Amino acid sequence: MAAFNLTSAGPSTFILNGIPGLEAAHVWISIPFAAFYIIALLGNFTVLLVVAKEPNLHKPMYLLLCMLALTDIGISSSVIPKALCIFWFNLKGITLGGCLTQTFFLHVVAIIYSAVPLTMALDRYIAICNPLRYISIFTNTRISKLGFIGLIRGVVFVLRAPLLLSRLPFCDNHLISHTFCEHMAVAKLSCGDTTVYRAYSLVIAFVVIGLDLMLIVLSYGLIIRAILRISSKDSHQKALSTCTAHIWVMLMSYSSSLFSNLTHRYGQGIAPHVHIMLANLYVLLPPMFNPIIYGVKTKELCKKIHQNICRM
């Protein structure tokens, strides 16, 4: 990130105001924030440790769960620690370099996060619609390569955004009404023309997340069609149970992400504290619920977690 062009026109420090209108309640708001964050860390690190420890879980599906756990940790950890510093210690200052770094990592991880459910959807599609070829198609090596491609895609798409943001001239007002450096909140402080930046960020949101979501919907449409053709009732229920967790996770993640993106651009009628709370819940709730949902729905993983807890 040292390559960012921190021009003299830019401010040396931004002020993150937390949640406007609810400053008096910051300490109380921090309690569920901290609790959700701790649960998210415990749940996701548990998944990582159990999968790493158990050789029987070294399979493509569990590698995908580990990737999801890593992105969950990355998304929540890029935002919540700073938010808690604001709530607890009133540490609202953040340098321009720190702000751009936070924006960069948050959105890189968000794009990787979008790629993981897509890979999961393809995994379930092959497993249900073409089970005889599943082992040859979805190998651990191939999953690792897909994860690396997801990382490269995130860096390539996002890197241009903070570079554009760093070149914008900023007004005297350096107050960001947010708990973190949300890129559109930062862009709104600029005195210059932000048309190119707004267009670029909107294209990324719809091309990357929109395309991923469209492919996921297509995959699950084909999966549901294949499930309805299964004559065996037990196989029918097993296939539905396998996909239910994926569908719940994607609905929770994509709906909150798209809502947050669209309201920041077009939701002028929405109260700022409502939008900011929803933006924070997007980085809190999916990371907290993902390991719980998959831990319950994935019987083998649930069994191994229970065994490891009983040994402690």
Rank of each mutant, 00 (worst) to 15 (best):
L68W: 09
L64G: 04
V116S: 05
T46E: 03
T71I: 01
N261T: 03
I309A: 04
M184T: 10
D172R: 13
V79P: 02
P11I: 06
I305E: 10
L57S: 08
K188G: 01
C171V: 06
T195M: 10
R229T: 15
L281M: 12
I75E: 14
T46R: 03
H246V: 00
I29M: 09
C99L: 07
G150M: 10
I126C: 03
A25C: 04
S12V: 02
G154A: 06
N280K: 02
M1Q: 09
F206D: 06
G97K: 11
P169Y: 02
H275T: 10
V51K: 02
R225P: 09
I149E: 03
G295T: 05
I86E: 00
T179N: 02
L163S: 14
P11G: 04
V249R: 00
F148P: 08
L278D: 03
F157D: 02
K238F: 01
A25L: 09
A110S: 15
V207A: 15
E300K: 10
V296R: 08
C302W: 11
T119N: 07
L68S: 11
S114L: 06
N308I: 02
G147L: 03
G192W: 04
L240M: 02
R167V: 08
L57T: 07
A121P: 12
N56W: 02
L262Q: 04
M252D: 02
I230F: 00
G221E: 13
V79H: 03
F206Y: 14
A9V: 14
Y266S: 09
I111G: 14
L189W: 05
V108K: 12
V158C: 07
G10K: 00
F289R: 01
F105W: 15
L151S: 00
